[in-house]
Design a protein around this nucleic acid. Structure first.
Lengths: 149, 149
DNA sequence: ACATGTGGTTGCATTATGAAACCATCCGCC
DNA sequence: GGCGGATGGTTTCATAATGCAACCACATGT
């Protein structure tokens, strides 16, 4: 009985999210998909991970509705992995992870990459948390309650 | 040679973040810490995970500077695990994960929890991505470039 | 037709996870 | 200060996940 414990039935949305996308390779696959990767081989070359692991992850992502298979854009008989709306919705999480990493996981001057607005080419603003009425919220200004809906 | 591959030296901030906090239990620990948990036993009871796993995760979190140990607030000889600024900075990631989970991992009507503004008690606004000049950005409006700094 | 590229699956060694048992302090109480 | 339970772990051992390499089926290029 050393089965990995599942948080799929937790009532906490954070737990459920982590259950689905809280895996290093899974997130890296989504990241690459957002940057345009579509084919099995592209993911494998970019990530350098074992093919069996990639196969398992891709299958899970398709089952979870984050990626979907569609006929290859280049007209070949192969298939493309493309992000569904649910997969595209991971974007803010990716941004949050990226900004935290930029701030806390790199020494000053260390080479890295940044996210820019495609139109202006300028670095995007940091994510901010706002109340329903627009007030800026910081750490400690929020709390969790059971949903009453 | 089946050592779990490390992404610590990746130049991608997302990869580095995932390396540190991209673990289900790790994130759950941070979540509980944000909700006020401080003691080993509190985490264990709340999460229901094996004590050895918890011990390993807590040690890693302290080494990574996300939690720090300090004398217990209740005056006992035990120690409290409290979030450092680096740990508090995970808050936006937590919010992003939560909002994605709320939207995509729950059936309508299923019991869950929501994050509210402590002052008004109302649910917080969804995270939005903005350009440097304030324009609202959607998925596809951003791209990644090497940092030139 | 044949070699090569693509997209996997299978087998096996190594590593991480997890339940339960065990152990060292610490605390409250008498 | 001595005793029982709470606290905060460590150890042991079984099971599950990861990763490398080898293999395989089908598509494509020439």
């Amino acid at each position: 009985m050393a089965k990995r414990t599942s948080l799929k039935d937790s009532t906490c949305p954070v737990a459920r999210s982590m259950e689905v996308i809280g895996d290093c390779w899974t997130m890296m696959i989504i990241r690459d998909a957002m940057l345009g990767a579509r084919r099995f081989g592209e993911f494998q070359k970019s990530l350098g991970l074992a093919k069996n692991i990639l196969a398992v992850r891709l299958k899970a992502l398709v089952e979870d509705g984050i990626l979907k298979l569609e006929p290859a854009a280049d007209g070949s008989a192969y298939q493309d992995y493309v992000l569904t709306p649910k997969g595209q919705a991971v974007h803010p999480i990716m941004v949050a992870l990226r900004q935290w990493g930029e701030d806390y996981a790199f020494k000053p001057g260390e080479p890295t990459t940044i996210m820019v607005d495609r139109k202006s080419g300028k670095q995007i603003k940091k994510l901010e948390l706002h109340a329903a009425d627009g007030r800026l919220l910081g750490y400690g200004d929020t709390t969790i309650v059971p949903s009453t809906a």
